[in-house]
Amino acid sequence: MLNENGILFDVTLCVGCGACYDMCKEVNNLPETNDDYLKDHLSGNTFTVVEQYEEMYARKLCMHCNDPACISVCLVGAITKSSTGAVVYDADKCIGCRYCMQACPHSIPRYEWGTTKPRIRKCNLCDDRVKAGKLPACAEVCPTEATLYGKMDQLIEVAKNRLKNNPDKYYQHIYGLEEAGGGHVLIISPVPFEQLGYVSKLPNEPMPELTLNAMEKIPSVAIGGGIFLSAMFWLTKRKNEIAKEKNLLKGNKENEIK
């Protein structure tokens, strides 16, 4: 994980210019969805937004979890982890059950509701660009380096140093490092994260573990159930037979007495 890449977004550096929003639309060939980019929201045609909270701006995008709920729930494996660390989606495999949308702890995946061949839509951390040696569009275009792209271990180092060197400037928490098992998008800010619309109170365990606890019991239920039912089948059958034989014996004795 530490050799994989990710994003560090620093709320204190973001000036809300919307360059990341525009560039994301451009490289992904997405149509315009709102006249005012600050009022836009994630949708089938918008993979990242810049939201305004008083004087602060917060980016929303896929958190590219280390152990993503969406990957674990996708029954056909249409969502996978790229070697770069990005969580990517293959529309050709997708059957459109939308469990990933339901399961995502950050409620990120969006759907193309308007078409008859809908796809799940979300940020893919510009996986193709990164594999071609380029930066993700948002990181490349950011004029203030509020969005940094790099190796995860280096990003964590940078974030920790900023929090340590400027304790008055930052709320002492790196959002995304541990939430839901952590991911490849880290956020630091001057205020608690729920004030910026991020999902707070997430457990630190990866979400798929919640399901795994139940799924683990399947083999024992299947095998144990099979043994139990087979045993009950023979036992009750034998019991009925014995009861029948007893009845027969009784009947014979009664006949003899007569």
Binding site: S72, V73, C74, L75, V76, G77, A78, K93, C97, Y99, P208, T211, L212, A214, M215
Partner: peptide, 8 residues
């Protein structure tokens, strides 16, 4: 296409 970790 199998993903055995999925409840679905």
């Amino acid at each position: 296409m199998w993903n055995v970790h999925s409840v679905m």
